[in-house]
Amino acid sequence: MLATTTRTAVTLEDVVKTYPGGVRALDGVSLSVDAGTFLAVMGPSGSGKSTLMHCAAGLDTPTSGRAFIEGTEISRLNETKRTELRRARVGFIFQQYNLLPSLSVADNITLPLRLAGAAPDREWIGTLVDRVGLAGRLHHRPSELSGGQQQRVAVARALVSRPAVVFADEPTGALDIRTAREVLDLLRALVDEFGQTVVMVTHDPAAAARADLALVMADGRIADTIVAPAAPHLARRLTELETE
C-alpha cells in the first residue's frame, strides 16, 4: 500500500499494454494507491508513465492484467460503462486546461455534472470555488483569465463530482514557475484538507516533490518507488535512467 488508510482508490494488477507492432508500453505493472494519497509518476520519454495513467483512469484498456477504481474492475467494462464510471468517479486535469471557450467559468466547472445528468451540490460547488480562488470570476469566459486561473477552473471542474481519484497529466507544464507553484500548492491542499486522491504524471522533479510518493518508470516498469521524494534525488534518478 502507498499509505495507511482503509480504502484503496486505484489498483493495477500485472498490467501489460502492447500496441500494434509489438511495442510494450507497460510490462506487468502492479500498483495500489490508497485514498488520500498524492502520487507522482515520472520517467523518461517513452517510459510508460502516460500509458499507466490512461489504463488506471479507464481511458485505455490493458492488453492483459486488471485495473480497478475503488474496487470496480474498469478493465472489463465496455466503453459505455467506462465512460459512465469516469464521469461519476474520476476527475481529470490536463496541461492545456481543456475548457470550453463559449462557457462561463461556472458552466465549465459544472459541465461534468450536466453530462452525467447529476444535480449540482451548491454547497460543495461554493466550497470549491472559494478554495480555488475563483469567487469573483464565475461569469468570465476562459479567454478573460490568466493561465493559472484557467487551470484553477480545471481543478474545480475535476473535483465537482467528488471523484474517487483525480488524474493530473502535466498540470503545470504550460505555466510559469510562480503560477505552477500556486497550482501545486492547491493540489497539495486538496489532498491534505479534503482527503482527495491525486495521481499526477509529470516530468518536473520539483512538481513531483510535492507528492507523498513518486513512482519512477523505465521501459514500461516501475523502476523506483520513492517515499517523501526530494527534487534533487528525483532529478539524479531520471538522469541515470536516461543515460542507461
Rank of each mutant, 00 (worst) to 15 (best):
194 F>A: 14
87 R>N: 14
240 E>R: 13
244 E>V: 11
163 P>C: 09
22 G>H: 08
236 R>A: 15
72 T>S: 12
84 E>S: 07
173 G>D: 12
217 M>P: 01
150 Q>D: 05
145 L>R: 09
25 A>W: 01
103 L>M: 14
243 T>N: 11
148 G>D: 13
140 H>K: 12
188 R>D: 15
203 H>P: 14
55 C>A: 08
145 L>Y: 06
134 L>S: 07
176 D>N: 10
167 F>M: 07
84 E>I: 01
161 S>G: 12
185 D>P: 03
144 E>M: 13
223 A>P: 01
243 T>V: 06
34 D>C: 01
73 E>T: 06
111 L>V: 04
183 V>H: 08
5 T>R: 14
201 V>Q: 02
65 G>R: 03
54 H>S: 14
60 D>K: 05
222 I>Q: 01
171 P>V: 13
86 R>P: 02
185 D>R: 06
12 L>D: 02
19 Y>S: 04
147 G>L: 09
242 E>P: 00
115 L>P: 05
214 A>S: 15
145 L>F: 11
201 V>I: 15
205 P>M: 10
44 P>I: 07
127 T>P: 00
234 L>T: 06
107 D>L: 05
192 D>N: 14
199 V>M: 14
212 D>K: 04
158 A>F: 14
101 P>W: 03
94 F>H: 05
238 L>W: 09
164 A>L: 02
26 L>P: 03
102 S>R: 09
197 T>W: 05
56 A>P: 08
53 M>H: 08
9 A>H: 06
